[in-house]
Computed example of a mutant assay.
Amino acid sequence: MVHVLFVCLGNICRSPMAEAIFRKMVAEENLSDYIHIDSAGTGSWHIGASPHEGTRGILDEKDISYEGQKARQVHVNDWDTFDYIIAMDDQNMKDLNKVRQADNHTVVKKLLDFIPHPEETNVPDPYFTGDFNYTYELVSKGCKHLLQYIKEQHYLN
């Protein structure tokens, strides 16, 4: 089993969007029994909250389920559980490195690092930009490349 954790600031916009999109992609490839997916935030402001209405709106529009998603904060034990911790931007990476425990297996990268020659290096936070469509485009592209990477690394083709 491969465990993937998506991380953003508050776990209400970008990371739950990535979790939902990636879960659908994984299901479409019949890999749900092999890949476990979750999301979390570096901050604690929204613990227990559902995804932001903008995230819910675009996911509803694309017919992607976010059922049962509730915001939670990243915990040091996540490094024991997850093989991949995928951040949305540079600040998330800095925050993760503050709580990161020394390990030898968890891959901690930004989502857009998996895209060859990405047009952006960070997924902009639609909580501040208001542009959930652009965030969706970037997250979808990143998730597609991340899934391909995981399939190659774990022989799931």
Rank of each mutant, 00 (worst) to 15 (best):
E67D: 15
S39M: 08
N122G: 04
Y136R: 11
N77Q: 11
D125I: 08
F128E: 03
K109I: 00
D113P: 05
V123A: 03
M93A: 04
P51I: 04
D38S: 14
T81V: 15
Y127G: 12
G41Q: 11
W79D: 01
S15A: 04
L111F: 08
G130M: 10
Q69S: 07
E61D: 11
G41M: 11
T81R: 15
L96T: 06
D95C: 06
G57N: 15
I37L: 02
G48D: 14
F128R: 06
E120L: 04
F22G: 12
D60M: 13
Y66K: 07
A102I: 10
Y34D: 08
N122P: 00
L59V: 12
S39I: 01
K70Q: 13
V107P: 02
S44T: 09
V123L: 11
G57Y: 01
G41N: 11
M17E: 10
A40P: 06
T106M: 03
E28I: 01
A27K: 15
T42N: 09
M25D: 10
E119F: 02
A40K: 05
T42L: 03
E67S: 14
A18W: 12
H75P: 00
I86V: 15
D89Y: 02
R14N: 03
S65F: 02
E61N: 14
N92E: 00
